[in-house]
Design a binder for these strands. Structure first.
Lengths: 220, 220
DNA sequence: CAAGTTAGTGTGCAAGCGACACTATGTCAA
DNA sequence: TTGACATAGTGTCGCTTGCACACTAACTTG
């Protein structure tokens, strides 16, 4: 019996995976079908009976893209019935942040048919997935102001200018270098390493490391 | 066939209704059953096929409590399977704010078996409904800082001291009168009326009115 | 060694925030 | 009528915070 029982609905957990590619905030999408001219969709899929919501998001993300062990937070639940053609689906949307230079994640992401798209030039997407991406982008930008969430994009060691480029890519605006450094260092969430990044014909940049990796601090 | 189909789940929309009673932030609950010693639960119920999520919240809220036309926002979606005894239910939680002196709402609320409980002395509740109320309370307190959401609790005309008591009840802390008035008036969301509240043996208080009722401003 | 490129640093001003105490105006009771 | 009581209403000062703003440092490469 495939027809939905009354008041019992399919529920999917879909994930907006953000990562930084070439200083551009990008989203990981998977093809909706195999034909040419297909649309794209968020990685995700149906939640199983007796499965935790966040576990369902992780599982479907791994199935669709190979990614696992990433930072994941619930975003919003979408469920307007007019969003669908045939079968109504409720979507519990999550967003994930992936470090750009995480080799494991990068390898995982490049395995399947998934592709990265810059958030400012997204392809045609299934259902209301474009609205979900927009919602996630706004949430992410808002969280920059009162949390250390942007550190999730950073590799183990990085220069402050790299972090600044992350902020600028998400916010879509340029930031003053001095004010940015003052503000970030005042958070007391980074510490100097003895090392420097030597690349390019210019002065090397001090590398920093996150004091408590994997932990997102909220400050009001 | 009542057993759930695989990957098809019951989804409920439940509502945390906040209102102010006797200067105390309170939540509207309905009895889980009719026996003595029953637990209490949030008003809410299953989402129907082809029904918008927020419409389902409104419909179930009206059915359980008689309330309608209130301020309603999505809170979070809860769905750990261990939260349940028999049947796993996913809950899309909403929160609603009701003006204390709204006679229509007050009348509606007093019709059924629903009862108001101060948020600091809640009864034993079904499933994880206590966690949902806690989550809603934290969200509400956070929104006081960057929005005019508290005005949803106020009647048509009210003194500033009344609004201050709302803030204090939600935050659980006392606020300085002069700083509070400065801050609220600086938002430019209220305007004086020519009238005063004359109650009690003391100086009457100027009554204010909301410039754009029904509209919650966000200021970052 | 000159040109090019990014790293790194401090100050001053304006706005906002919190601490803080007294006068004003009504009611009510003696 | 007057005194006691209760809440309304008002301004300043110091501190912190946010923002604008320009130059020197250090490396690479030709």
């Amino acid at each position: 019996m495939n027809a939905p029982h009354n008041d019992i609905l399919p529920v999917s957990a879909d994930v907006v995976v953000f990562t930084m590619r070439e200083d551009c905030l990008s989203v990981l999408l998977v093809p909706e079908g195999k034909r040419v001219g297909h649309r794209w969709r968020l990685p995700g899929g149906l939640i199983r009976d007796r499965e935790r919501l966040d576990r369902a998001a992780e599982r479907n993300l791994q199935r669709d893209t190979g990614l696992s062990g990433v930072f994941l937070e619930q975003l919003y639940t979408f469920g307007a019935p007019d969003r669908v053609s045939e079968q109504r689906v409720i979507t519990v949307a999550y967003y994930a942040l992936v470090s750009a230079l995480n080799p494991t994640a990068t390898k995982q992401m490049s395995i399947g048919a998934a592709r990265l798209f810059p958030v400012n030039s997204l392809p045609v997407m299934m259902l209301d997935h474009d609205a979900i991406v927009g919602c996630a982008h706004r949430r992410l930008a808002a969280k920059l102001e009162y949390s250390t969430i942007a550190l999730q994009f950073m590799p183990n060691r990085f220069p402050l200018s790299g972090l600044q480029r992350v902020y600028e890519a998400i916010l879509g605006t340029a930031l003053d270098k001095r004010n940015f450094r003052k503000r970030i260092l005042a958070l007391d969430c980074l510490e100097e390493t003895p090392d420097f990044a030597r690349n390019g014909r210019h002065r090397p940049a001090r590398l920093y490391r996150i004091k408590t990796p994997g932990r997102v601090e909220i400050f009001k």
